[in-house]
């Protein structure tokens, strides 16, 4: 079966590759890829280290429309180098967001959707990956002034490292049960802080703290959806219709500082503790 035929039959979003995901979300016939794979804009740094490159460096930039409105989608391919951000892929995302912001300054209401499947910086391009992520973050904050910036973390990779900070800057975050969202990957925490602190092989434990459902009930994301392409599509449309949020999550300094101040220093932490601490429902809440 061809990829196209599979796309038509399947409703799972997670099973789709980055290009198929972007195509599935844009209005039919409106998908147009920028710097597509045949341009072979590939990592200049991986071959120097004996690592095979991918023709699109693991990032698909597609322009098109959603409900007729100009939209750019940046989709990360999680299966290439763990969705890591190198110089080229990072510049594709940052550059696309910069141009979307520029569009808005010129009266064109271009919006952006980020499909995040990433472990963060590509360590083989370390400082250039980090720099690109800083530029992605800068561009999100800029574009967010004009239009909602929506990020979807579907899985299976999740969203980690500097890109989790980028996710935290978005106007709306949509996750599935398969999503994980956290700053530090489990292996890194185990390496830096020890296995008693964080056992990277204890999957239920990791999921209980950083999985999509927990992030939703603690108000750290906006929507929790099943792995279904049409439902994710509908949720994106809903978020766009809501317009910009009154106050982005990353601006709720006072609320979070207040909550962190209520935590007993020696209190052990688990999923329930965080749910109680960040319980939604009060007027200052993050939801």
């Amino acid at each position: 079966m061809t990829d196209t035929a599979r796309l038509l039959q399947s409703r799972s979003f997670i099973e789709l590759g980055a290009r198929q995901r972007a195509r599935a979300l844009l209005d039919q016939g409106s998908f147009r890829e920028l710097i597509g794979p045949f341009e072979r804009m590939m990592s200049p740094w991986l071959p120097k280290q004996g690592i095979v490159t991918q023709a699109d460096d693991g990032v698909v930039i597609a322009k098109g429309t959603i409900e007729g409105q100009p939209t750019v989608i940046a989709a990360i391919e999680g299966s290439f180098q763990g969705g890591s951000m190198g110089e080229v892929g990072g510049a594709k995302i940052a550059g696309a967001l910069e141009l979307a912001a520029e569009d808005n300054r010129n009266g064109i209401p271009t919006r952006a959707v980020l499909l995040l499947e990433t472990g963060g910086v590509r360590l083989q391009e370390a400082n250039l990956g980090l720099a690109a992520i800083a530029e992605i973050q800068a561009a999100i904050v800029d574009l967010r002034q004009y239009q909602p910036v929506i990020a979807v973390i579907a899985g299976p990779v999740g969203c980690f490292g500097g890109m989790s900070i980028a996710a935290g800057l978005c106007s709306y975050l949509i996750v599935t049960q398969e999503a994980r969202l956290g700053l530090n990957g489990p292996q890194v925490i185990e390496q830096e802080a020890g296995i008693e602190e964080y056992d990277s092989r204890d999957r239920p434990f990791i999921w209980s703290l950083t999985g999509g459902e927990q992030r939703h009930v603690t108000g750290l994301v906006d929507a929790y959806v099943p792995d279904d392409t049409e439902t994710i599509h509908a949720q994106i449309r809903t978020c766009f219709r809501q317009g910009k949020p009154a106050l982005e999550r990353s601006r709720r300094y006072a609320w979070f500082l207040d909550r962190l101040g209520r935590l007993e220093p020696e209190q052990p932490i688990d999923a329930v503790t965080v749910r109680d601490l960040y319980a939604a429902g009060d007027e200052g809440g993050v939801k």
Binding site: Q137, A138, V141, D142, S164, I165, A166, A167, G168, L169, L181, G182, L183, N184, V188, I189, E192, A193, E197, Y198, L209, T210, R215, T218, L220, E248, R249, S250, R251, R252, Y253, F256, L260, L263, I269, D270, A271, T273, V274, L277
Partner: peptide
């Protein structure tokens, strides 16, 4: 950044986004 269980559980990524947001 701080590496720890409490940090991940309480959303350190969001705290760092708070700082990035304000600087930007």
């Amino acid at each position: 950044q701080a590496y720890g269980r409490r940090e991940e559980a309480l959303g350190i990524h969001q705290a760092l986004a708070g700082a990035v947001d304000a600087y930007a």
